[in-house]
């Protein structure tokens, strides 16, 4: 399914957080959102997923939803958001229990996503027994279980150490190769953005506006072999962001 944001603006009281955002996320595409701290990326993601109402503008989903989708817009959170009192499979089943699909189908879906994320042997583990990377894998499995049309990922790798981040990034690329999911991916990390994004939207400091939309044509699976080009892209992005980040930094200090 395609997702279109039309003239999205949003305020929190006096504070204008987002101004006139227009963005398209086409099916099978990963769109990265980068921008300085506090510019409204998480807010935008909450608006997209319907967790908050935009002050003005529209968010439109169009096209055929994936077969048997249970939750078209599905989040993957920075802090994993796993229920600590449920096991790995219990956490996945949480997302399925409210749908009348029957115990057998639920079981099958859980088994299937566990094996797709290589978590089968951890099915009965509690979140506290898992490392950060494993927890995020569980969250990814939970998201896959509801067969989302668009995945909304808010800095999914930020809470992880750099090695785990690299591993998980490769997993995500792998997953995309196999299943071609659609995603809106918020990140601070420009290296992640150029590895994963088909389009990268650079937001300005608050109020967040789209400063530029950078497209990267290299197919995801070949990016490993084009590190030079990616480095150049990353440098361009950084130059775009640098002033904004500097200014945003000073704003926070004076606030």
């Amino acid at each position: 399914m395609d997702l279109r944001l039309e003239n999205i603006s949003h305020n929190y009281g006096e504070i204008e957080v987002l101004r006139d955002i227009n963005l398209e996320i086409n099916e099978g595409e990963i769109v990265c959102l980068v921008g300085p701290s506090g510019c409204g990326k998480s807010t935008l993601l909450r608006l997209i997923g319907g967790l908050e109402r935009p002050g003005s503008g529209k968010i439109i989903l169009s096209g055929e939803p994936p077969k048997n989708t249970l939750n078209a817009l599905t989040y993957i959170f920075q802090d994993f958001a796993l229920l600590p009192w449920r096991t790995v499979s219990g956490n996945i089943s949480l997302a399925l229990e409210d749908h009348a699909i029957g115990a057998k189908a639920t079981r099958e879906i859980i088994d299937e996503v566990l094996s797709r994320t290589k978590l089968t042997e951890f099915a009965d583990a509690l979140p506290r027994q898992l490392s950060g990377g494993m927890k995020q894998r569980v969250a990814i499995a939970r998201a896959l279980a509801v067969r989302p049309a668009v995945m909304l990922m808010d800095e999914p790798l930020s809470a992880l150490d750099s090695q785990t981040r690299e591993l998980l990034l490769e997993d995500l690329i792998d997953l995309w190769k196999r299943e071609g999911f659609t995603a809106c991916y918020v990140t601070h990390n420009l290296a992640e953005a150029v590895r994963l994004g088909h389009k990268i939207a650079v937001l300005s400091r608050r109020p967040g506006q789209i400063r530029q939309l950078v497209e990267i044509d290299i197919p995801l699976e070949e990016r490993k072999n084009h590190l030079d080009e990616l480095a150049i892209k990353q440098q361009t992005l950084w130059e775009l962001m640098r002033e904004e980040a500097l200014a945003a930094d000073k704003e926070l200090l004076s606030a």
Partner: peptide, 11 residues
Amino acid sequence: SLIRMGQSFGL
């Protein structure tokens, strides 16, 4: 954030 998560899965 857990409640948000629940809402985001349509519970």
